[in-house]
Design a protein around this nucleic acid. Structure first.
Length: 323
RNA sequence: GGCCAGGUAGCUCAGUCGGUAGUAGCGUUCGCCUGAAAAGUGAAAGGUCGCCGGUUCGAUUCCGGCCCUGGCCA
């Protein structure tokens, strides 16, 4: 059996807990399963409290992949992640283990599941473009993109410097236009079942606030302080993680600790809305309410032996669209 | 009780020398997204301008009274 189960949904909806329960359920049915993390920040060692990383106990009980692979001062990219995660899935399947992919970033999920190809990158080119951006300004760089690839320029807004730089980089490296078009939503593997958790805004916001409070109580600030000495501040990726960025600002004396906590809650809520709006578009996802009592069974029924992707009677949820 | 400063968007505030107000920040809602994605970005909605009267063609703006908030003095 080589089904790939994928759990998606906004942060704090309970994906990790469901993944663990599901893995236990499979194991109980004599079908080993392992969890493959698809969250960008869980790959960094030491980022535990702020990322709500599964506990040591849980990691010992259920094998997890794609966790604690890098130091915080290293930069990991989607492309690398894609490669490693796909390898992990293949490895599971070779061993007749069901991979349960869990993640909150739709780009990462799609990069793993769909025919997503990243055209490559070159630090030297990137640096040069960024210098040009700094020297000549966004308008100038956007003008260059308009000339090199009008179609891409049309789809990228003049103020979105990050994407302008990337587009020019791709054009320069490949010699072809940067078609800012995402590939179709088509799985590259057979038997993929995507399950999404739906949760209304009000309870989600409450859960986020509770989680952030719990993080603080668990010593989050100390964790960030520790990581700061390991180069967190200088990292391009890890330093931007929700909560970490805000606590760094507190440690730098820019804001108070209370403000850092409030800003973390706000940024996390905003992130959850972004996650929603992306996942919502994917018609392949089977939605389940986060709080249904038979959540694990429902998920198991979707991905289990009864039939790949078969929606159990009366178990279907509704997409994450309110009102 | 007296004096002073305020009451304008869900919150914090601008502004209107009288012509039904702001590209405001935050929040909300809805979008976009190809090697930083827990990142980066766009747009929209939203106000009987504290209440009641007066002056005026016309009041959120001027005048009077009242209510509320904060501060100072008794």
């Amino acid at each position: 059996m080589d089904v790939t189960v994928v759990l998606v949904g906004p942060t704090a909806a309970g994906k990790s807990a469901l993944a663990a329960d599901l893995a236990r359920r499979y194991t109980a049915e004599d079908q080993p399963a392992e969890v493959i993390n698809a969250d960008s920040m869980l790959v960094y060692r030491g980022m535990d409290i702020g990322t709500a990383k599964p506990s040591k106990v849980e990691l010992a009980e259920i094998p997890h992949h794609m966790i604690d692979l890098r130091e915080v001062n290293q930069t990991t990219t989607v492309a690398e992640f894609q490669q490693l995660a796909r390898a992990a899935i293949a490895d599971c399947q070779r061993r007749d283990v069901i991979p349960i992919v869990v993640g909150g970033s739709a780009l990462y999920i799609r990069a793993i599941l769909d025919d997503f190809e990243f055209p490559g990158t070159d630090p030297a080119v990137r640096t040069r473009l960024e210098n040009e951006l700094a020297r000549q300004g966004a308008k100038w760089l956007y003008q260059r993109l308009s000339e090199a690839d009008p179609l891409a320029a049309n789809r990228i807004l003049p103020g979105n410097t990050r994407r302008i730089v990337r587009a020019l980089e791709v054009i320069e490296l490949t010699g072809r236009p940067f078609t800012a078009t995402l590939p179709e939503r088509r799985y590259r593997l057979p038997d993929v079942v995507q399950i999404g958790l739906t949760i209304d805004r009000a309870p989600l916001d409450a859960r986020i606030a509770d989680r952030v409070d719990a993080m603080w109580a668990a010593g989050f600030v100390d964790e960030v302080r520790r990581l700061a000495t390991a180069g967190l501040r200088e990292s391009l990726t890890a330093s931007r993680a929700l909560g970490y960025r805000q606590v760094l600002r507190f440690l730098d004396g820019e804001i108070t600790e209370a403000q850092a906590r409030e800003l973390t809650i706000g940024a996390t809520r905003k992130f959850a809305r972004r996650q929603d709006s992306w996942f919502r578009k994917d018609a392949r996802i089977h939605w389940l309410r986060y709080d249904r009592p038979d959540l694990t069974s429902a998920a198991y029924a979707l991905g289990g032996p009864r039939g790949i992707g078969a929606v159990p009677d009366g178990l279907a949820g509704t997409p994450a669209v309110e009102d």
